[in-house]
Design a protein around this nucleic acid. Structure first.
Lengths: 203, 203, 203, 203
DNA sequence: TATGAATGAGTCTTCATTCAT
DNA sequence: AATGAATGAAGACTCATTCAT
């Protein structure tokens, strides 16, 4: 078989491809991969069903491209580098900012988050993407902490734990699956916990 | 409409129903819900497709019954109550036991775990089941800790964080998605972390 | 193949067969032949599914036996012979009695009537039964009229037309599919019409 | 949910849709709704099963569209307006023309007629269609009669009875379920009967 | 006689993908 | 480059009937 997938060169064609990615990714995030069919995607994108298969190998391909393009906002929301100012006294402030940032991002895209998390556990490429984002995030925090004089020893492990704690917390706050939990207290506990991880660096 | 679902009364029939649940749940856990069809389930269980629909409303129903029956081994593996001995000096030992127990259980059923976690994020009833198990586990630890004199204040929140930490750790150990991580160190960090949570109780 | 259908001899067995006929016929009349399954029939009759096939060749057989047993009340409701008194002056009264009798019978079993009429047009045996009832009814009226001195000439044809007129009228009255029709006038017209048929006999 | 039914735009596609309606309606009329499956319809129409569901919601939809398209020839066959000339002396001639027209039409489509009549009694939409046709026919005759100076009083009722008489007669002639009936005499009786209905107008 | 468990062919419907224009 | 028509395999579910006990 010849490789039939075309990379659009013309401006209008590029726009079209983008529209398909957006429409497909949005629908999948909203209704799930299995509940979204290509006809819907084409309709939502305002194109014919046939054209979809000139730009994408298959339905799955749309998801993956969509993920690459929009996934950043959904898994481990990126922080604005410039706003991060960190010294020992402002560490707690930073943590609270991160938590708030995550929560407000998750709130916006919580349906997408659930649908994609589902695929993290069932699809290899989505899992890889999630992992990549996690590593990027880890690296990001590592860099910041190192440049602020934190000890490099076991830093990856500490950051990983930190991210896990934050993620768990935020997920709980957004979906509050457990009725009898006080999120204010939980947040404080998590922050204390993280500060304990970096005790040496903060003293 | 008539209620078509029959509860088998004969011994052999009850066995057959169990076989269907087992076959269905196993296949779903192995290949995913969408990649498992009723014909396969029937074949694997050694029955006809028709009988499946006499004992179950639909394919989904098989999953849910399977989950109720076998889910305990997959989400938050249950600990043998009798082996738990806890005083302040043995707290760390307990944590290590839990972690090892979780890891060895997850190792056995890691494919099932991933497939079901996928549904935790996409299916309401599976999500509810997961949540139920989480609450049961939380209650279990709460009870133990209280009966050993731990302070009740914020105990739910602390245990929840503890479980989150353990889960994250074990997941990472099993799947080690991140190459450059030292699990021994991570384990120690997590244990220290948890001990810090209960600092007051352990002094 | 051996003929497996058993004619029940024991009293209890005969009762059972009757129950199946009643349950089956009732359900078919209520929900239609295709929307009634044997499991329902068995359940409604309070017997097992297996036993059904010892008394009946198949589902269809139940319908036919039911029809033989209960059809009289549904197609061309039978008149009480003894109450019929007819002389020339009371002919109109008789017609009105018949019409009222038909209407009150159809009212009771109108759902059954529709379901069975449906089968009159699609099933050979039901059609035959309907036809048989029509002939019986024709004969019944013929006999009465003859014994009251009506002319035998073309009597079958006249009675057939009469029955058609009455049936149409009653059907319309029960279901009144047409909004703008005055049934009182229609009834009078039909009666006049029938009296015209037998003009010679009534003068 | 997206609206999945497509209205074909290309010429060939429109043809195909028509073919499906024709094939489906013909098969249903021949074998009955329940004895016709979509695969057969598709095969008869020379298309794939998939395309059927792009043009029709379901099998039932095919029937209804077929009915709208071809039902006129089956229930209450339409008369050619231009050929109808009516004055008092030609009334009987008109009646005989109608009867002959009905009989020759019914002869052609008698199997269809029976299958559809079956549905008139079991299916709501088919019943509605039948009723609509009956009303249209009533209106048609009303208009003609009025324009020829017939009295408007009770005209709907009279025409309804007339149509019933004709229908009954023609049905009997086609299917002659009763062996010992003289159709020539019956026809004459029916015509006399109808003329009696409009006695005032014809004098 | 009786039960109810078991069968499996049959049906409608969906949808990713390809094709003709 | 684009359309939308067409494909057909696959899947969930039903139910009349038979079988084992």
């Amino acid at each position: 078989m010849i490789e039939n997938i075309r990379e659009p060169k013309q401006k209008r064609a590029i726009e079209k491809k983008k529209k398909i990615i957006k429409a497909g990714f949005d629908l999948i995030c909203k209704n799930g991969y299995h509940n979204t069919n290509t006809a819907e995607i084409a309709k939502e994108a305002g194109v014919s069903t046939g054209i979809v298969y000139q730009y994408f190998k298959d339905k799955y391909d749309i998801l993956i491209e969509g993920l690459e393009k929009y996934g950043e906002n959904i898994f481990f929301p990126v922080l604005d580098n410039k706003n991060i100012k960190l010294d020992k006294s402002s560490f707690e402030k930073l943590l609270r900012d991160i938590i708030n940032h995550y929560i407000s991002n998750y709130k916006i895209s919580n349906i997408a988050y659930e649908e994609l998390m589902s695929m993290v556990y069932s699809d290899k490429k989505v899992a890889e993407y999630y992992c990549k984002r996690e590593i990027e995030t880890t690296e990001f925090f590592k860099t910041i902490l190192i440049s602020n004089g934190f000890d490099k020893e076991n830093l990856v492990e500490k950051v990983h734990i930190m991210i896990g704690l934050i993620n768990n917390l935020c997920y709980e706050v957004i979906y509050h699956k457990h009725k009898n939990m006080n999120y204010c207290i939980m947040t404080n506990l998590v922050i204390t916990n993280i500060k304990n991880l970096f005790k040496k660096d903060l003293d």
